[in-house]
Write a protein that binds this DNA or RNA. Structure first.
Lengths: 334, 334
DNA sequence: TTGTAGGCGTTATCAG
DNA sequence: CTGATAACGCCTACAA
């Protein structure tokens, strides 16, 4: 147990006045005389007084803290996102409690419990890739802790979510490929159970249609997003009788593995095979042979919007209808 | 203000027993009868009772929260570090409050203040590149909030610090260069005021000496670590009458810019010019032409050690002597 | 084995 | 303008 710092009572004792007066003086309450206020502030200064926030949190039933749960900060997408969240939180005088799920649903739940214990005023969350059980949403509802999902959001209705519409970027990607003559465009997709994968799949199909290209289901491969999975995926595509000449992949990490493998196989990028993926990570600008393009998903805009929605809810205690905000994704050519 | 969840009092009322009994029952106090305990727990369950941590924090003068301040999560070094910190914190049932300084001393201070307000039990910190004023250390001391620095640590004595000895890696780098015949080895260093730069400079000099190579001060260039600064630095080296054939640079980010520039100039890496830098970021494995090597600084080990020291201090209230732990850095060839 | 009372630091209400 | 009192939820010595 720690030594106790100066309190309002202590100041009151020294000045031989009541704690309530001190409290009011410190808060510049209009009804307190100027002299008293000054004297109080002077002593407070001397004693290095600092209000005990834990007491205030306790009394006010508010912690001025939000919790942020995301899969992994090693993904540039999320480190951008959290920077923006921190910024918005700061603007509202809030602090950020952080937790990485590493795509582990159990960890996710544990972090949520901890946040709840710590009585955070709200939660921002991007789901892990394996999260199936969404019952925690109800639990948070019961506890009246608002939550806003972003990027990787649940399929269910009735929750706040902010995400990017993967279809716009996909359409642009396929257009870009088609416009330079590609007919055989493949998709290396993520795990089939992911909403993000399903959306990519649908958008891919639509994209081909609008370009009047045939959909060939052998051109859609799934990877579990591990390096090995990625390599197996590209290998499958390369060994098809009719090899695709252009490939959209789940994200830039996949493309990194894939490009490396293709290079090892002696194929030349942007000649033998063309790539576009999601995420638009900054590292491409350093690569000697970057992919043809990458689809920007605007992590900071998503994060900011999500945070703003959250603070909106924290501010107004009456139930507001859940919000859904969708950003367009956008192809960026390299 | 929020609706109040179930409290101990509420349970007591329902059971017509006293709150203290409920409290004890919930904490498995031995003096409470088994039946009572069960009945209490049952009702607690029904009411979805959850202890109000803010009350407990308040009473115990402990928040089970540590604050972590680091320059930027977009650097892989720090995102590794924070993952490890989170892990250690979890092992101690602690939660992590997060703040990025973005190398801005004012922001750093503001985050520190916030952490202090929130009454964190301890702080882990890696200094920003421009932090000169270290008076906050004393302030934290007065507030009895232990702090452990890691990676970018202050030069002063009497604080806990964990960092990596840059000299070992530098020696290996210069040896590696010398062993394949390089005589003209340059250093692209960071800002001169940085401890990290000074150490690199000293180690560079020593390294040359042990290899009996001459030290040429024109081979030491400083960059402010912006892209432009990095490009200017390499340009200066390339336009020297006697161009260096090998270059150690401040970190991998610098090397990325530099390699790109060199490539634009038509020079070939690992032929016209060889590179080694600090950090050993994972991205090299994807590059077509990675640098010759990178010096690993073990962010996770540093972070873990720092966190362990911190929790040690948090555990024991008596003053322990400040600790300093140094890890060796190590060259990893690509 | 259980209950009572007091306190952690702050603030809001009511009374002077 | 200022003071006394109670209350936030929990814990714990002390009393019964």
């Amino acid at each position: 147990m720690k030594k106790k710092p100066a309190t309002i009572k202590e100041i009151a004792r020294r000045l031989k006045i009541s704690p309530s007066t001190v409290s009011r003086a410190l808060n510049d309450h209009p009804s307190i005389g100027l002299v008293t206020t000054m004297r109080v502030k002077k002593v407070a200064e001397e004693l290095n007084y600092e209000p005990n926030q834990t007491a205030i949190f306790f009394k006010q039933r508010r912690t001025f803290t939000i919790g942020v749960i995301l899969p992994s900060l090693s993904e540039p997408f999320f480190s951008s996102a959290i920077s923006e969240i921190e910024k918005v939180a700061g603007e509202h005088d809030y602090t950020v409690l952080m937790g990485q799920s590493h795509d582990d649903a159990a960890r996710e739940l544990k972090i949520l419990q901890t946040f709840k214990k710590h009585r955070v005023d709200g939660i921002l969350m991007s789901l892990g890739k394996n999260t199936e059980d969404l019952s925690f949403v109800e639990m948070l509802n019961d506890a009246e802790i608002p939550i806003v999902f972003f990027d990787c959001v649940p399929k269910i209705e009735g929750v706040n979510k902010v995400y990017s519409d993967l279809a716009t970027g996909m359409r642009e990607a396929i257009q870009a490929f088609a416009s330079i003559g590609h007919q055989n465009i493949a998709l290396i997709n993520g795990p089939a159970n992911l909403l993000a994968s399903q959306e990519r799949a649908a958008a891919y199909k639509n994209g081909l249609e609008s370009e009047r290209l045939v959909y060939n289901e052998r051109y859609v491969i799934h990877t579990d997003l591990t390096e090995q999975g990625n390599v197996e995926a590209i290998d499958k595509l390369l060994t098809l009788p009719q090899r695709p000449s252009a490939i959209v992949s789940f994200n830039d990490f996949v493309t990194l593995d894939v490009i490396k493998y293709v290079r090892q196989k002696g194929l030349v990028q942007k000649k033998d095979v063309f790539f576009i993926s999601y995420a638009n990570y900054p590292l491409w600008k350093y690569m000697e042979n970057p992919p043809m393009g990458s689809i920007e998903q605007y992590p900071d805009q998503q994060a900011r919007k999500a945070a703003e929605i959250l603070f909106n809810r924290i501010g107004s205690d009456d139930q507001v209808e859940p919000e859904t905000v969708v950003f367009e994704s956008k192809l960026v050519l390299k």
